[in-house]
Design a protein around this nucleic acid. Structure first.
Lengths: 266, 266
DNA sequence: GCAAATTTGTTCGTATGTATT
DNA sequence: CAATACATACGAACAAATTTG
């Protein structure tokens, strides 16, 4: 046989979208109508739509209909090279960042965290969790983990559920002379967990992945750089582009707009 | 009603996976068996499995069965801060990179490419496309775009379908004294196109996203940095972690293993 | 505010096709 | 070739969400 019917239907609708016959935001014909148009069963039409939904081309809403997805105008997040925070812009405009009061907790470190911070298994750590919004939109969740040892050594505020005005890194340098000499970012992409899907209002089927950045901060020691902090930042991939600059480059705002479509030649 | 039946079944199976009752790589009971066990129809069981597949917890293979996904031991790719290439390691071992002969073509630039390279609409560009393998596994596809102007000015090899031994950036500096003074990486995450799904052997339903890095190279001019090259590198997100280092940090190989599970406390 | 109409979501049953062992 | 497992396809009925009158 040539190709399954639901794939043929999906391909036909996809083509209508590409050609512009169906425009972003436009409603697809109802399942009943498509069933008649393609001489298929409603379930087969639903398989076709499910295919398109899974590819991110279509969204279905109970009671309303199915619609061609409209690409969100993405936030452009420039990752910080130094201790300064990230900056966010959209459409050539810098946007203000709203941060919640942190949720601060003390936990036992899981094995992977203990390994990354070179702590003994289930050593105590302080976690500081911030939710961050831009333009009213949930933008990222950031959680930093510090060994409890740092609090004991005098960095009391780490364990308090208040923002640290000057930033945690500056605070650690002031109070216990702990200076970050470098950091490593590790970038992972995968489906959101339940809490992340809730916070970002992502569909709970996990088809829109999140980008997780693990930033390990290092300080100096006789044995060379040793880790003292892990910061986990999570972004929804459907509304964010991450930018990393090296050397001399123009401002993101001055530069040409980055593409949403990844089409470069014709 | 509480929760739909297929979700209850999915949740139950998911929990068996989390608890370790079903281990990575292990085969799930057949759909018929699950149908009897949960007193549901086969279609409902299939909906549950579809849910788990879409979340990346389970894989189904026609004629064989459904299996708990085994996390691929990920490649750790350290992005180059300078002109040097990326390095790849896995399990604390540096791996060799095998690169195909480039596919070299001349195109008219699409609008977004012309905008990024500040060319007039549909100016001609040379594209150089490399497929790169590590350990026999398709690892990334890299395509660089150069204004045709650079060839005209003497960088003839850019338009030849042969690897440039010293690297394109060194070659451009040698032949036409074009020096890169900085670059910007823009990172996008989304479903693969058909060619990418084929190259990486990704399921064609687009549930495993690819990571696309657009690297714009800048050179000096009287008006400040101007772009002269765009490199597009695509990675499959299911087998890659990207690492970016700043300042003084230990070697990736010396450092603790990065987590696949994103669980940090207990 | 409620009822009807519309649309997608869930669930069942059944039959047949295709891939693998 | 036969057995097993998943994939595709059809039909039917009711539930839930949303819009409209």
């Amino acid at each position: 046989m040539a190709e399954s019917m639901y794939r043929q239907v999906a391909r036909d609708i996809e083509q209508k979208i590409q050609v512009g016959d169906l425009r972003p935001g436009e409603q697809l014909p109802s399942e009943i109508e498509l069933r008649d148009r393609y001489n298929a069963s409603r379930n087969t039409v639903r398989d076709a739509i499910r295919w398109l939904v899974s590819r991110g081309l279509v969204e279905s809403k109970a009671g309303q209909g199915s619609f061609v997805t409209r690409g969100l105008d993405p936030f452009v997040t420039t990752l910080a090279a130094g201790p300064e925070p990230e900056t966010v812009s959209r459409g050539g405009e810098v946007l203000a960042l709203v941060t919640t009061r942190p949720r601060v907790e003390v936990h036992a470190a899981a094995d992977n965290l203990a390994g990354m911070l070179r702590l003994r298994a289930s050593a105590r750590v302080v976690s500081r969790r911030y939710e961050r919004f831009v333009d009213g939109v949930p933008w990222s969740v950031q959680t930093s983990f510090y060994p409890m040892d740092l609090v004991t050594r005098g960095a009391d505020y780490l364990a308090w559920a208040e923002p640290i005005k000057q930033g945690a890194l500056a605070y650690l340098e002031e109070t216990i002379a702990l200076k970050q000499i470098g950091h490593r970012d590790t970038l992972l992409v995968g489906p959101p967990d339940e809490a992340e899907a809730r916070f970002f209002s992502l569909p709970e089927d996990g088809r829109i992945p999140v980008i997780t950045i693990l930033r390990t901060g290092y300080t100096d020691s006789r044995q060379g750089p040793v880790p003292f902090r892990l910061t986990v930042t999570v972004f929804a991939s459907d509304r964010n582009q991450l930018v990393i600059n090296y050397g001399e480059v123009p401002s993101v705002l001055d530069d040409a707009v980055e593409p949403r479509r990844r089409v470069f030649t014709r």
